[in-house]
Design a protein around this nucleic acid. Structure first.
Lengths: 340, 340
DNA sequence: CTGCTTGATGTAACCGGTTACATCAATCAA
DNA sequence: TTGATTGATGTAACCGGTTACATCAAGCAG
């Protein structure tokens, strides 16, 4: 039942454990016939080295710990996909760990010590400074989309501010003036940055910002659309802080018979697969999450190899112009003819 | 730099490693003042136990290895979500590992020995018997959606045959007769089972099966739709082996001006989130993948705890009737009026 | 034939925990 | 007083690998 150990193999092959270890690790200084004998015995005994023991003696786990809040939503699974790709290229495994509450969070991180060589931390909802303070300094880490004031930890972040501003400028260039932002929860760092970018670009364009606070869920988008329909007030564009809310708004507007984009333009953020498939297709800021995940792993692998790394790296989202913002606004029905 | 060890703590607190270990693991037989002294020293030194070493001596890794082909698509990320949930409930971590080619597959599995307590294997594209043959018998495993002839390994599988047959019966009940199946790659076990279920139900209904072989990708669905449009041949329903292909077909038909579902009905399999959101919304067989993942972990946890488990468990997909099959077919345009 | 180099192999310490067992002092019944 | 019991603590083996260093035989120059 229990597996054979290296000592079993050594005994059976009448050699020392050192020779077996050398054969297993492909060292060259072993006589061919000895090597063959050991290989034969290992095969006969169905021997495979115990990775845990190997980790302990080499103090390399060949694994990266990935700490994230919840796998819900496309965001994290995409990130995971990118990490997984980058990790398996480098012969690394990924050790997943959920981080629900902030209380057990630090403790959880320590659980990882000795089983991973590095840590990717994605926790937009947890105070990262507290997290970092409790972090074992001996284990290289990288923060992904965390707001931290500390600059002594490698960080990878989406340029949410710049992306939101770029979207506003796009809408303005299409002649939109009444641009409402449907935001994420203000406790979320990313949501905050997008609000700030939106407001900055609005002010820059001489327009008055108007923010409806949402929660990144489809329903919040629908609710925002409903509120806008109740008091249109010159609104000719809805810019949601993520695609799901944009889609919620889109469907609500469509159901209410509003012409998109002629009457009201809609824009999102993230470019989830759905954005391209829904009709009318959704203009959005593409965030290449898988790429960010892959880069996190790459940087971590470098850090583990010894390259020091304390940089903040920003990933710039890309504007994807689709049907929901294709045209300039058209005054609806009997309102004043061609006034601005 | 390097972290403190249990011996450092013992020396500093002037006690033995055994006492430190006892305190760490919450054993009761330690004098309160000794306990406090040790806790103080541990905190002062920033000591946290090395999980790898602990694993080695207890031979419990508190981790489940998850072996899957590729994170692509919603399928695996959903499964992962369910597993993650079930695992963190039980204090287990998930160790991910990609399994691309079949060659390095067995080797890969052994890489896991000593770092996981059990294995979830999802590999619809790899010959599972070969996989199992090379599997270390000492490590409990469960196969998810694998075709295997062996019945000595716990297995969890979607009833693809039954699901496909149920979908055909639904279409037939809606008056469809020219039902084409767009399949997945025939090397894939799940695709095969869906083909078989489709064919069986068609024959049962006295209809002639017609299968177009696809590859589970959106484009394959579009291509199948194009082919059908080239030679309609009485086709009034497309049943794709997964939702992505169904959506590909849906969009292609819509772009070609085909009325859905009046002229051609469309159905998929999986019920990805997109299915509900696209318009017209897609009829499909709901597979609760997250639940399957969670059950895999649960059964594995039981097996690790000692409960023997050699059952095959089938998960029955549920028919989700949406817009793409809502109505009965209507003859298009100037064709024969109310024939049939 | 001697001394030195070289390559293959073995010995044992080490990685950092856990834990069976030994030890020892204190308590208590006889 | 003494032997048994109990509870706290220490010692050292063990988990299963890796590897620095020791050992030893063979090859070879002088």
């Amino acid at each position: 039942m229990a597996n054979a150990t290296i000592r079993d193999v050594a005994r059976e092959a009448a050699v020392s454990v050192a020779s077996v270890s050398r054969v297993l690790n492909g060292h060259s200084n072993v006589r061919p016939e000895t090597r063959r004998k050991i290989e034969d015995v290992a095969a006969r005994l169905g021997y495979f080295p115990h990775a845990g023991a190997r980790n302990l003696s080499t103090s390399r786990a060949h694994a990266i710990g990935v700490v994230l809040p919840d796998l819900h939503g496309e965001f994290f699974s995409e990130a995971l996909r990118g990490m997984d790709r980058a990790a398996s290229e480098r012969g690394l495994h990924l050790l997943l760990s959920n981080l629900h509450d902030g209380e057990r969070a630090v403790e959880m991180l320590h659980t990882m010590r000795g089983r991973v060589d590095g840590l990717v931390i994605m926790a937009p909802h947890i105070d990262p400074d507290r997290l970092l303070a409790g972090l074992p300094p001996s284990i290289p880490s990288i923060l992904v989309n965390c707001a931290t004031s500390r600059d002594d930890c490698p960080t990878l972040r989406v340029d949410n501010f710049g992306g939101a501003a770029a979207m506003v400028r796009h809408l303005v260039s299409r002649g939109r003036r009444g641009i409402v932002h449907v935001s994420g929860p203000t406790s979320n760092v990313e949501a905050r940055a997008r609000i700030d970018g939106y407001e900055a670009a609005m002010v820059e364009a001489g327009l008055t910002p108007r923010v409806l606070i949402g929660d990144f869920m489809e329903e919040a988008g629908a609710a925002a659309a409903a509120e806008i329909l109740r008091a249109p007030d010159g609104v000719d564009a809805i810019f949601a802080a993520n695609d799901m809310m944009a889609i919620g708004a889109l469907i609500a507007l469509r159901d209410a018979g509003v012409a998109i984009p002629d009457q009201i333009a809609v824009a999102g953020f993230d470019d989830i697969p759905l954005a391209r498939l829904i009709s009318p297709s959704l203009t959005t800021m593409r965030v290449d999450i898988a790429d960010i995940g892959a880069r996190a792993i790459a940087r971590l692998a470098d850090a583990i190899a010894g390259t020091p790394d304390h940089r903040l790296e920003l990933s710039t989202p890309e504007l994807m112009i689709r049907d929901t913002t294709k045209t300039s606004p058209r005054q609806s029905g009997e309102k004043q003819g061609k006034a601005r």
